[in-house]
């Protein structure tokens, strides 16, 4: 499988990364080089093999359903590029 310019534009859009025409054109051969290389995996016989889900066997734990943290609004907002009235602020999304 290989990618072309429209595919790179689509991936970049899915990943929410703005790319210029020149950048997108440069990315095409780079991705194809890497994808061509990982393609060798298709030759590996994996019939009947379950995909790995946990690298070290570990059972998921449950904890008591209690509040362990909170009331830290100012901490949460401290690193926000723009915070107003105790909220994260973003450009207008509803006209």
């Amino acid at each position: 499988m290989s990618v072309d310019l429209p595919t790179v534009r689509k991936i970049a859009s899915l990943a929410r990364i703005a790319v210029t025409d020149a950048e997108a054109a440069a990315i095409v051969p780079e991705l194809n080089n890497i994808l061509g290389w990982v393609e060798q995996l298709s030759a590996v016989d994996t019939d009947g093999i379950a995909p790995m889900t946990a690298v070290i066997p570990n059972s998921l734990r449950l904890r008591d359903d209690v509040v362990t943290d909170g009331n830290r609004r100012d901490d949460v907002l401290k690193n926000a590029p723009q915070a107003e009235h105790g909220f994260f602020a973003v450009p207008k999304v509803i006209e």
């Binding site: 990982v38 298709s42 093999i49 379950a50 995909p51 790995m52 889900t53």
Partner: peptide
Amino acid sequence: DAYYTKAQKVRAL
């Protein structure tokens, strides 16, 4: 499936 699931299978191997 072609990439990610396949890779997780090879990882198991």
